[in-house]
Simulated scan of single mutants.
Amino acid sequence: MTLLKWLPLAALLVSPAAFAQVATCPGLPASAEMSWEKLEGPDFTYCKAMRADDGEQAFAVMLRADAQFRTRRSHREGSQVWIDGHQVYWYRGDVPNGIVRETLLELDRNSTAHIVVRASDDGELARSLQIAERLQFDDMRLGSN
C-alpha cells in the first residue's frame, strides 16, 4: 500500500524527457509497396521510403520542430497540391544528374515535415510524387529530446 502512495510522486520526479515521444514516420498508402527506414537524431526523425521491388529510396521525410528548408518562390513547380489536408507547392531542388522536388508541411505549432523526392527521370518523379502526396501525418508527435 505504501508503494502505491508514493508512485505518483515518483512519476513527477522522473525527467520530462523520459516521457517525450519521438516522431513516427507518416502512413504510406497501402498500394505504395514501400516501407520506411527510420533514423533518429537528437532533434529530428528522418524517414526514407524504400521501394519493395528494387530496394531504392523513392523519397524522404525529415520531421523536426523547425525545418532547415526554406521555400523560394522562384523554384516553385506546378500548381498547389494537398498532402494530408495541407495545401503546399513543390519546389525544384538543384542537384546534378537528377530531378529533385521538395515541399514543407507545418504539421502543428511545433513540428514540420520536409519531404524530398529525388528521381532520375520524369516517370520516376511522377510515381514518387503521387505516393508522397498521399502520405498521412495523422498521428505525428514530435517530442523534445
Rank of each mutant, 00 (worst) to 15 (best):
Q87S: 15
V95M: 08
Y89R: 08
W36R: 02
I115K: 04
W36G: 04
R72L: 10
Y46T: 03
E56F: 00
L3F: 12
G41V: 05
I131G: 02
A60E: 09
R134M: 04
F19S: 14
L28K: 07
G27D: 13
R109H: 04
R73H: 03
L63G: 08
T2W: 09
P8E: 06
V61S: 05
I99Y: 08
L135Y: 02
I99E: 06
Q130V: 01
R64N: 11
R64W: 00
M140Y: 05
A132H: 00
S35Y: 06
F44H: 11
F44C: 02
M34D: 02
V88T: 09
E77Y: 12
I131K: 03
T45L: 01
Q68F: 14
W90A: 06
I99F: 10
S128C: 03
S31G: 03
R70F: 06
R72D: 15
R101E: 02
S79T: 12
D108G: 12
A126E: 12
E124K: 11
A132M: 04
N110K: 11
A30M: 06
S120K: 14
A20C: 10
G55F: 08
W82E: 13
A65M: 09
H86Y: 03
E133S: 12
L129Y: 02
E124A: 13
A17K: 10
D108Q: 06
M1K: 08
Y89I: 06
